[in-house]
Amino acid sequence: MSNKNFVDYVKICCRSGKGGAGSAHLRREKFVPKGGPDGGDGGRGGHIIIRGNKQLWTLLHLKYTKHVIAGHGEPGSKQHSSGLSGKDIILEVPLGTIARDPETGEQILEITEDGQESILVSGGRGGLGNAHFKSATNQTPRYAQPGEDGKEEWKILELKVLADVGLVGFPNAGKSTFLSVISAAKPEIANYPFTTLVPNLGMVPYRGHKSFIVADIPGIIEDAHKGKGLGLRFLRHIERNSVLLFMVPADADSIIEQYNILKNELNQFNPELMHKKHLLAITKCDMLDDELMEEIKKEVPSGVPVSFISSVANIGIQELKDQIWKSINEE
């Protein structure tokens, strides 16, 4: 998917429908001159609903939709007939979409399953007809409830990519090359920082016709949590991954220092990311001889599974896939 077609943030104005007024009709027929109240209820106003669609990967189709307006409910009528409900507006969104209040930043709802529906802005209730107000002391009420007004609210829709594994690393760490080797994804690859400007997803085949999904998150830099580099724009995509694969190139000045900077950025952004399973891959190992390899093994942090790989030379790739599969499926 080209960079301009990946949209993971939209702000839209949602206006739900007004409820229909209840009817104050009194039954009048040829042989029933005083039949009493028979006014029906008004129909409810239309809702703004969002629905999960697994065929969608981006919010591009909503990029130029600034206003969404639902239909109004119809008024009630005689013979206890209720008015029609206003037309609902359904916004289809990719799985992993969340809705936020733009003023408070509070998360309102999230869509994680195909076909899952949630009301984003509810329509106004229809008014009750006069039949509801009949009593022993008021046999012929000549009034009914008006319908409730609809709501007009701005909402933010954000997409957080759903994947089993998120690739975390500085620009030029070899994430895109790794993804292109283990899956059919074709991310842009070049020898300069920030080649990847949008998250790339790849379906990775595994032994026995199994598979898992890997997300290549655009490169993080120091102080990304403050908005530097690509900043906060893509850090949120890491929140949905069950396993985080840190990727540090073998030619880094200090592997453990780079790993700790990456961990700190994630911790500053969201401390809960520290509770996810972490793996570490030392990339570009085709440039190492046995002596350098032994030196680097002394540097790697303890307490995290470490793999030495080269995507270009296909070194250690299957072993890393085995480790990823184990981490995804262990309790």
Rank of each mutant, 00 (worst) to 15 (best):
T137Y: 07
L159G: 10
G105C: 10
K160A: 10
G126F: 01
T112M: 13
D114N: 15
L120R: 02
A136H: 02
A144D: 00
K160I: 13
S122F: 05
G123T: 11
F133C: 02
T97Q: 08
L128V: 01
E148V: 10
A131L: 03
G129E: 04
Q139M: 13
S135F: 01
L109T: 13
S122N: 09
N138Q: 12
I156D: 07
E153T: 14
F133E: 00
T97H: 07
A99V: 12
P141V: 09
S122W: 03
I108A: 07
I111H: 00
Q145R: 11
G105R: 04
D114P: 07
H132M: 03
T104A: 05
Q139C: 11
L120K: 07
E158A: 09
D101Y: 01
E152Y: 01
L109E: 06
A144N: 03
T97L: 04
E148S: 11
L157S: 01
G150E: 04
V161A: 06
H132W: 07
T104D: 01
P146Y: 07
Q145T: 06
G127S: 08
E117M: 13
G150N: 10
G129R: 02
E106S: 11
I119K: 09
I111V: 11
K134L: 10
Y143S: 11
D114S: 08
F133D: 00
N138R: 14
K151Q: 15
G124M: 10
S118M: 11
L109Y: 00
T137A: 04
I156T: 09
E103C: 08
G105M: 08
H132L: 01
L109W: 04
L109I: 12
Q145V: 06
T140H: 13
E106G: 08
T97P: 11
G129C: 07
E113N: 12
D101W: 05
S122P: 10
L109N: 05
K134H: 05
E153Q: 14
S122A: 15
L162S: 02
Q139L: 14
A144R: 03
G147Y: 09
E106N: 13
Q107W: 03
A131Y: 03
P141Q: 06
T137K: 05
T137Q: 08
G123R: 09
L159H: 06
L157W: 02
K155C: 13
S118D: 10
G147P: 13
D149L: 15
E158Q: 12
D114I: 06
W154Q: 14
G124E: 08
K151C: 07
K151W: 05
N138Y: 00
D114T: 05
R100K: 15
G124C: 11
E158N: 10
Q107K: 14
G150V: 12
G150W: 01
G126A: 07
H132V: 02
D101H: 03
L120W: 05
I156L: 05
L159P: 08
T112E: 09
L109F: 14
E152C: 15
Q116N: 06
E103D: 12
K155N: 08
L109G: 03
E103R: 14
E152A: 13
L128K: 15
S122V: 15
R142A: 12
K155T: 13
G115T: 01
E152I: 14
N138P: 06
G124K: 06
G127W: 04
E103M: 09
L120A: 04
L159S: 09
W154L: 13
A136F: 05
E113T: 08
W154R: 11
G147W: 08
D114L: 04
L162E: 11
G147V: 14
E153Y: 00
